[in-house]
Amino acid sequence: MEILVCVKRVPDTSENEIAVNSDGTDIDRDDLVYSVNEWDNYAVEEAIQIVDRVGGKVTVVAVGDDESEEVLRREMAMGAHEGLLLSDDAFAGSDGKGIATILKAAVEKGKYDLVLTGAQADAGAGQVGGMLAAMLDQPYASLVNKIEVIDDKTLKVGREIEGGNQEMNEIQMPCVLSIQTGINEPRYVGIRGIRKVASVEIPVLGASDLGVSSDAVGAAAAKVKVQDYFVPQLGAGAEMLEGSTEEIIDKLIELLKAKGGLK
């Protein structure tokens, strides 16, 4: 099976506290630690496991600048066979539809049975997979937490819905699936694994290589635009307990007693 997995380089929220920059035009990007989007990492692991079972090849693709190469290499160290970077100044400022347009062009240059994305990334939109499937006229399932290969045309997939219940579906390939966290346990990637793929060439394709017209992508084509970043003041907020740890704990125990928090 030929599988393409779309991955994104994002600020790692477990390593950074995300703050707004001084003029509110972006988050503060100084000294941020980046990594591969958590959901995408599960998608790559799933693709590798499928290919381990039924054979085939896993390609990882990212839309981004040169620095995205590092996340492609990381996923190749996990076991993805090939990497592909889609990079062009014309792509800057794309909205979800713009990104899906770029990825669609890359999908059509190959011959993939299955395209995987993460269920969502740093902006929490969860839109690229569904858009890509619609552009390709392929079936789609979101929030997938189980994949079973039935035959070379059919998959059985579980979607995780409200309450943790699982909606089982049969889906025809070629198709697009967005992957939910927890579907597997992504393998650890050590420094040695990364070193092994350090010199593998990763092709870079721009707008003209992909046959993407520059007015279909980028800021000018985007119908949805972020105007500014801010931190809202919702309601009164918590009463913050301050002082020495001793004092805080004494106060907290009083509160717990009053509210029925201690038995």
Binding site: P11, T13, E17, I18, A19, V20, I27, D122, A123, G124, V224, K225, V226, Q227, D228, Y229, F230, V231, P232
Partner: peptide, 11 residues
Amino acid sequence: EFSGQVSTHVT
């Protein structure tokens, strides 16, 4: 964005 750490105005 970022699990609610920052908000954005969007058009």
